[in-house]
Design a binder for these strands. Structure first.
Lengths: 242, 242
DNA sequence: CGGACTCTTGAACCATGTCAAGGCGTGTGG
DNA sequence: CCACACGCCTTGACATGGTTCAAGAGTCCG
């Protein structure tokens, strides 16, 4: 289910949002953020497992995650899915859809999720009065390009153990930026999703989680993860086999 | 070697450029393109094998390829390269560098190459007077995100033969958009570069070129390629193993 | 409490990598 | 203009990381 709601005047806006240091308002002054408030007039609530948008849907907006989390996935010619990202609060979904007028990917909620709707036409209308908005939006798009390139590198160059260690560290770092613990968290996705994202099978991910556990690097119980030795994980992820 | 030259008043500008249907001017009216001419005041010529920019260089501009071709590559922790793209005329280099002020990648000319310099500060200055510029730039960035996601899918999901067939078709399609033959062209990169880009070894690429040759799909002689059976290649690239 | 997921673990297999040898082409210096 | 050397490509034999297939154990939820 997908429910659209208007942002009540007394509700939280960009200017008062806890995520403003990660999301679109990053780098803006108090006044600039107040201007930005005009832009966000609608939110959408998506239930766990439901889609924020589907491949082929008309593109009219991008979506800033306010709470919850979303996975985005492409489909290949044979209908198999490739997950291209797990989005957390403060991150933007739909950045790959701004060429054609059709979404090239699905966006599916991994838990009950709320997003802020950023309409493209309204962004263009506001932009001349808020030039920093374009710059920040450009930065967010560039970041996605960089992230995706890193992913290509990971898939092209790294061993499975390096990818999995890197994945855990990446989650840790992003969750800690949101104010959560960097060493203890709950994965919102299945082993299969992690494997798909990392270009591995769910069995390989499971085996590596078990091995890392045996080696004392992490503790895993179902989707709860504890990172016990960040340095060792970093070495595993970063250092090459030399 | 890397030589900066000013654009002479009587030289080709965006408004008269042959690439205008692919590059930044796409979708602009005659008048809008004339405005865009102000933006491009410098070009850079880069010799084969030399760098347009290096990892760590300060970011002040992005670069539209005017002639020649460029490969962009990241470096992993161990110093190994991962090629993230082969850029042809009309395509833009440096889109991944707009967050930090440092280039996250190297851009290396695969042949003698000339690029138009698009300074970010000048783009921001021009934007309020040319709103379509922002939109087109956004489209180009979105396209790069989409392309990179496709690459992730290819690396995550496809067999080597599908990746290589897909690569040939992709080159064919882009070269034909530039007015070249879609069935006969010269690859500007080595087998090693192709392999690196596709997450394979040069031996695997070579073996597949040979096999496709034996099967009558293509003819290869060194870096010259002829596509003899586009449909069969498409089937190979697109259809899954079912 | 039962049924359906989801995860773990083992064993066999295979796609692709690694290592090694040789061929082709091109440019350079004698 | 030839010969030699170097880089790039091809091909073969073998090694291996990761997949596939299969069985069983938790865990969640109605």
């Amino acid at each position: 289910m997908r429910k659209t709601i208007s942002v009540a005047p007394d509700s939280t806006h960009c200017s008062t949002c806890a995520l403003s240091e990660l999301c679109l308002p990053l780098g803006m002054s108090r006044e600039q953020r107040v201007k930005l408030d005009q832009l966000i007039t609608k939110r959408i609530q998506v239930k766990k497992m439901d889609a924020l948008f589907h491949l082929g849907d008309k593109v009219e907006a991008v979506y800033a995650i306010r709470s919850g989390s979303i996975k985005t996935q492409l489909e290949d010619a044979a209908g198999r899915a490739q997950i291209t990202g797990f989005l957390l609060p403060g991150e933007i979904a739909g950045l790959d859809g701004l060429i054609e007028l059709q979404q090239p990917s699905h966006a599916i909620a991994m838990e009950n999720t709320e997003v802020c709707v950023i309409r493209l036409d309204e962004m263009d209308a506001l932009a001349p009065h808020l030039p920093i908005l374009q710059q920040q939006f450009r930065r967010l798009m560039s970041k996605e390009i960089q992230r995706s390139h890193q992913m290509v590198m990971s898939l092209g160059l790294l061993l499975s153990e390096q990818r999995v260690a890197g994945f855990l560290l990446n989650m840790s770092q992003r969750l800690s930026a949101l104010g959560y613990s960097s060493t203890q968290f709950v994965l919102r996705m299945s082993r299969e999703d992690i494997g798909n994202y990392l270009g591995l099978t769910l069995e390989t991910v499971s085996r590596l989680f078990s091995r890392f556990g045996r080696e004392g690097l992490i503790r895993v119980h179902q989707r709860e993860v504890q990172l016990l030795n960040l340095d060792a994980l970093r070495e595993l992820a970063g250092a090459s086999c030399d």
